[in-house]
């Protein structure tokens, strides 16, 4: 595109925005409100994901080795665990280490287990603490491990893990649907608002067609207009969310300190990268849809 045309389109877009001041404000407001809801939901969704991710990462399988299992069976078991394709971390906990942990946990009451402390009387078992690459695979892998020779039993917090995965799955899908719905609503609203500014300028468009302006020449100023409205409209929610999120993080730190929220800078960085292009895309889509109708002269 020629620089002269570019300046012309940009100038025309600005003129149109100023000429239709109220309508432009309405378009900006629509973009701003939509992106504010969308952005807030994104922040919420990211934090929920972060928290559930932490919980997920803590999920591990504990495999207890059969006490009477011969040494070669135990060795074969260890080799099989290490070679398992889904396994990320395999940690052996000997019965004496398990006892040390128990003593640690009991603290002052450690004398209660004093009798069981030596190798022979220790009733605990060797075990493996295992983490899978994909936390969601835990139940399935655990079931498989139960069939291995030398395994006494396998524990992975069943009954807690499945509902958690179900919940995070639902949160993610609802989030996607909600955000998709909002984006569609935004395009619809913006296209209707910009359609009014296009309608006001229909005479101009008609003259342009009669004097031989190409369709793209007519379209560009409106596209620029949508781009500018979308850009300005995305700055407002960014500012509001930044202020709001910072206060929320501070409040959480003071009141509910055990839930750690994502750092504001990390969240805003992502949000800027998403909302500004999204606002501009929404603006362009909206104006593009509107101007199409009036190009048929």
């Amino acid at each position: 595109m020629h620089i002269r045309s570019l300046l012309y389109f940009f100038g025309e877009a600005l003129k149109s925005i100023l000429r239709n001041g109220w309508m432009s404000l309405a378009s900006i407001a629509v973009v701003a409100i939509t992106l504010l809801i969308l952005g807030s939901f994104m922040v919420l969704n990211r934090n929920v994901n972060e928290i559930t991710q932490h919980i997920k990462e803590d999920i591990q399988i504990v495999l207890y080795v059969e006490d009477e299992a011969p040494e070669e069976v135990q060795l074969e078991l260890q080799q099989k665990l290490v070679a398992h394709p889904e396994m990320q971390e395999v940690r052996f906990v000997s019965k004496s280490e398990a006892m040390e942990r128990l003593i640690d946990r009991l603290g002052d009451q450690a004398h209660l287990v004093e009798y069981y402390m030596n190798e022979e009387s220790n009733p605990l078992r060797h075990s493996y603490e295992l983490r899978t690459r994909v936390p969601e695979d835990v139940p399935q892998v655990a079931q498989e491990l139960e069939t291995y020779a030398g395994v006494d039993y396998v524990d992975y917090g069943s009954g807690v893990v499945e509902p958690l995965f179900q919940f995070t799955g639902v949160v993610r899908w609802v989030g996607f649907l909600f955000m998709g719905g909002l984006a569609l609503t935004a395009v619809f609203l913006i296209s209707h608002t910009i359609r009014l500014t296009v309608y006001i300028r229909r005479k101009e468009i008609m003259i342009m067609k009669y004097v031989g302006a190409t369709e793209w020449f007519i379209r560009w100023p409106f596209i620029f207009e949508g781009l500018i409205l979308g850009f300005v409209g995305s700055l407002i929610p960014l500012f509001i969310i930044q202020q709001g999120y910072q206060s929320a993080v501070m409040w959480m730190q003071e009141n509910i300190y055990f839930i750690s929220m994502l750092h504001p800078e990390a969240v805003m960085d992502d949000l800027v990268k998403t909302l500004i292009p999204l606002g501009m895309i929404l603006g362009v889509l909206g104006s593009g849809i509107s101007v199409r109708r009036f190009l048929k002269v």
Partner: peptide, 22 residues
């Protein structure tokens, strides 16, 4: 079919502007 928000010069110039005349 004149544009009421522009003066006569701009109305005539419009036909040249939209076809990219310098």
């Amino acid at each position: 079919r004149l544009l009421s928000d522009r003066n006569i010069f701009d109305n005539v110039a419009f036909a040249l502007q939209v076809i990219g005349t310098p």
